[in-house]
Simulated scan of single mutants.
Amino acid sequence: METTVSDLWMPGAERFSIGNTAPADGGPAKAIAHITWDRNASKAKPQDLVPYANLRSYFGDNVSGRAVAPHLLWDPFTGKVVQFFPANSRSLSLSDRAGGTRTNRAGSVVIQVEALFFPWCRVGGKTYESLVDTPCKGWDGLHAWVASWGVADCWPMGKPNGFVSKRDERIWRIRSGWYAHSQVPENDHTDPGTWADFTVNKVKPALEPFPGTSFFMSGSKPALGKSSSIFTAMGQRLVAEGCGLYKEGPGPELGQADIDSYEKFQRKLGYTGPDAKWPPGPASWAALEVPNV
């Protein structure tokens, strides 16, 4: 599968590479939801939100901040996002005890998102008790990019609802999806309290989102015989691109002609060797422009 630099960095986000990259360990793709929780406010005593620029500088320029930096800092009030690590690197926002699960690396990706927020913060004269009370600007684009890395649209330990801890290391080991900071083994934080819905302000895109590498595979082999309207739409686009090698079809069952045709399309894009082989990757899928089905 091909991997390109543009895939590693969220489109539209500021790229602020701080180096110190390291690979993930493999396993179910995960995303971790945090809030920055910079101040302790209350309903009786709300406090002004810490400026986005302060947190950007803390994680990007400060030695202490770099030691706990996430992949992404997201401002749900403005939609601004800055990214400090590429998607395929571990970041550092989780506590990681020696000898246990390597929390920051426990997946094919472990994408960590810090939302700029604390309970009872004040923005523009208005007070916000929970993250879901904010406009959640930029969430749809952020969510789509995370999903493109194979992170399932689910909360394996339950969607966060309050500042409580719930940890199950067995689930953590075997399930892809979104996890609250409060649900990660070896961590004692209780954030984020709440999080945006996967469907918030969601408009069906014109193009089929990348369904993740696992969609195209059955273990280590192509998922031959799997049926989906996505394969039909994919095959039709491959034909339109002059790469169709079909005697019949395409679709809806995945067949060898689909694989041969897609590999021909990847060669057309300039990929060679293993990068031109099945399964599809996010970059070539985006280039194919498969209509949303």
Rank of each mutant, 00 (worst) to 15 (best):
K166S: 12
D188H: 15
A147C: 11
T190N: 12
S95L: 13
S130H: 13
K80L: 04
S108A: 13
E186Q: 15
G193A: 15
W155L: 04
V184T: 08
C154N: 11
T78N: 08
R90K: 14
P192S: 14
W195H: 13
L142G: 00
T190D: 01
S108T: 15
R97K: 14
T101S: 04
R105H: 10
P86C: 14
V151C: 12
V110L: 10
S130A: 11
R90Y: 07
A106L: 03
W145T: 06
F84V: 09
V113F: 08
C121H: 01
S148G: 15
G107R: 06
A87Y: 05
P156Q: 09
A147D: 05
T127L: 01
W139E: 00
R97W: 05
A180R: 11
K159G: 06
T194V: 08
E114R: 10
A152V: 07
R90F: 05
G150W: 07
T134G: 07
H181Q: 15
S95M: 13
G150Y: 08
N88C: 13
T194N: 07
I171C: 08
F117W: 06
S148T: 09
V123R: 03
P156W: 05
G99Y: 02
T127P: 00
V110S: 03
I111E: 00
L116H: 04
G138Y: 03
Q183L: 09
L94D: 00
F117A: 04
A196H: 05
K166T: 12
F117C: 07
K126S: 08
D133A: 13
L92Q: 04
S95D: 12
C154P: 01
D188K: 15
W145M: 14
L131H: 02
D197Q: 12
Q183G: 11
W155S: 05
D197R: 15
D75L: 07
T134V: 10
V123D: 00
M157H: 11
G79D: 01
D133I: 06
G107L: 06
H143S: 15
R97I: 12
D188C: 10
L142K: 03
G138M: 05
S165G: 11
E169V: 13
F84T: 04
V110W: 04
L142P: 00
E129W: 04
V132M: 06
R122D: 03
S95I: 13
V184Y: 02
G177H: 08
A87S: 08
L94P: 00
R90H: 07
A98N: 12
P160V: 09
F84S: 02
S130I: 08
W155H: 10
P135L: 01
V81I: 14
E129L: 09
F77N: 04
A152I: 06
A115S: 14
V82D: 01
H143R: 15
V110I: 14
G100D: 08
V82I: 13
N187C: 10
G100F: 03
F85H: 15
W155E: 01
H189M: 13
A144N: 02
R170Y: 05
W195D: 00
D133K: 11
Q112P: 02
K159F: 03
E129N: 04
A115P: 01
T101W: 08
A98C: 03
R167M: 10
S182Y: 06
